[in-house]
Design a protein around this nucleic acid. Structure first.
Lengths: 156, 156
DNA sequence: CTTGACCCTGCAGCCGCTACAGGGTGCATA
DNA sequence: TATGCACCCTGTAGCGGCTGCAGGGTCAAG
């Protein structure tokens, strides 16, 4: 099988050339051999490793986790429990993130899209942001009697 | 009401002192007045603005969105539709993120926590990462650094 | 007069890339 | 042989949204 240039590797995995070089720089990919013209020359092992990395990134594992998983995969005799622990821990984190985003969605649906076309002074969105207690269901305008913007305008 | 030091503002909003200074640096907070000892001196307007920012960040708005929302809030006469559009757009993004995380969770639950205590060579987690097609239900071993087999290289 | 809490500026680092600039290589075509 | 073009190289800087630190200044209490 022919040697692979970095662009071949990129096309084969869907990872950009710059990112492949970045992975090498941070030690996630081993430095490949070089051609006479100083081009990186990859083999099938590199391709498989990069695919492994891509799959793991797609699943949301961070670089440190991937490093550990690669180390475990490189030693087939070790106990698999460590790999399972990483995955389970990651699953828990994903579930937590989903929960917090769902809470966010609940709050946003409470006021987004409720525009009645009025002026900003009556805007439900801006009201809620100005006084977060409104999120809990109350509905009162917070703009004080004086103009809300006695402060200087934001620079820039 | 007394002037507020940056630490007072931080305590009152739950935003760190460093972050308040950062918001000033990027023009999200207007530069406050200074005391004789060159301390920042904030007033109630600053406190309200910072609370607005915190609420918006809590809801996941990014800095650019917050800048727009603040600009709209500062001009009570303008049409509120713009604010509503920002919020609705953000809601859509949140929903998309939830959907993609749920897909992730589905994949992860398919193999995380299935450790039978064996060696890494038989590890379901590492198998899946080495050959993502396994996610769809197949079950065959493929160590990433292992000897080249007859599997064809990934297309694309 | 000293202690300690607070404040100041400026800059570097985090993560995971991404995007240049400024040059070299390799192959097909005129 | 010359030319063009796609590809490759190194190095560096930037993104967003902070966070942390060094090395100093200020201020009120004891």
């Amino acid at each position: 099988m022919r040697e692979l240039r970095i662009g071949d590797l990129a096309r084969a995995t869907g990872i950009s050339v710059e990112t492949v070089r970045y992975y090498e720089r941070i030690g996630l990919m081993p430095p490949p051999g070089r051609t006479q013209g100083n081009y990186r020359a990859y083999d099938r092992g590199h391709l498989e490793r990069l695919n492994f990395i891509r799959h793991a990134r797609t699943l949301g594992f961070d670089i440190a986790e991937i490093r550990s998983l690669l180390a475990l995969a490189a030693q087939p005799a070790t106990d698999c429990a460590a790999a399972d622990a990483i995955a389970s821990c990651h699953l828990t984190a994903v579930e937590a993130k989903i929960a917090s985003l769902e809470a966010l969605r609940a709050e946003l649906t409470r006021f987004a899209g409720q525009c009645r076309g009025g002026a900003a002074a009556d805007c439900r969105v801006l009201e809620v942001l100005a006084d977060h207690r409104l999120c809990t269901g109350e509905h009162r305008l917070q703009t004080p009697e004086g103009p809300a913007d006695t402060r200087r305008p934001a620079p820039r």
